[in-house]
Design a protein around this nucleic acid. Structure first.
Lengths: 159, 159
DNA sequence: TTAGTCAATTCAAAAAGTGAAGTGACTTCT
DNA sequence: AGAAGTCACTTCACTTTTTGAATTGACTAA
């Protein structure tokens, strides 16, 4: 099975990976959250090739993660902006950032998060909505649904 | 600049992307969090090629995200397990899963999260550690550090 | 002995990514 | 008015990565 089959997986992590799980797409998402809107800026700030950038932007637009908005008629110009679907990836990018800050950096973080509501620079984290306690890998257990478990049993027994 | 230069970026999101930001690595991470430990199981459950799987496992081991643990001397066998660094990616995988559940799925989620502390199936979310309120893209603002801002200005003005 | 398991490696073909150059619709400078 | 510059791409030749099938090698179980 190839990368192009990922969107058809039952697992939503596989499906999400297929949409945004590659190096350059994640870098584009970073830029979008930092406020970058134009082709040339993405190009310089990510230092990716223009070929790849236009491919990825097209893909993200098709998926509804970003939208093109015209900001000038003559010459015809437009900018790229996050849709609600795209904005909702914030948690993923922040989680990745915190992990990178913690495990891959020696210096201070290059990007801080400010909470507009309270005005503080913060390091957001995940909590359990029921008991309100902080949550991590150690206190979570994955429960696989019946149909998905069956599907997995089948492939494990396969040739 | 190419993919291989990502680890040298100042930005920790770029660095994190370089380590775990690709489709197959994310799928391997999913499996690790679901409890998969052995080569053949990864192979069947992700349906990736064995060549790529062994490459990725080697890379993840080198990076310290997973470790190989022997579980049998004869025949020599070992399993792959998450290190602390790997376990700390939980938030990223969960964030990706929630996003996939919300935007890419029609049916019920194939994997639920149970909080061991309170015993409930939950959808964890991010909060501001200072004021305790739920946080998302709309109420966050990115603050770019002085040195990183300078670096970015430089590339924007570049040829 | 033969078949089977596990954890890979090898190899050729196909797909994806890279970097440089080019295009076209404009605007600004002189 | 002509030349140079900007922005948003596309094209193309080349390199790297991925794919999928086959093979290896160390063992075990029938």
């Amino acid at each position: 099975m190839s990368r192009s089959d990922l969107p058809s997986h039952t697992c939503t992590i596989a499906r999400a990976s297929a949409q945004v799980g590659d190096e350059w797409t994640l870098l584009i998402m970073r830029e979008l959250f930092l406020g970058t809107r134009r082709f040339d800026d993405f190009l310089r700030l990510t230092s990716m090739s223009s070929h790849l950038l236009s491919q990825r932007l097209r893909k993200l637009e098709t998926q509804g993660v970003i939208r093109r908005e015209p900001y000038s008629e003559r010459p015809p110009r437009h900018e790229y902006r996050l849709t609600e679907k795209g904005l909702d990836l914030w948690t993923v990018i922040i989680a990745l950032k915190q992990w990178g800050d913690r495990w891959l950096s020696t210096e201070d973080t290059p990007v801080q998060i400010m909470h507009k509501v309270c005005g503080n620079v913060v390091r957001p984290h995940m909590i359990c909505p029921d008991c309100g306690e902080r949550m991590g890998a150690h206190d979570a257990e994955a429960k696989i649904s019946e149909p998905f478990q069956m599907e997995r049993q089948a492939v494990r027994r396969a040739p």
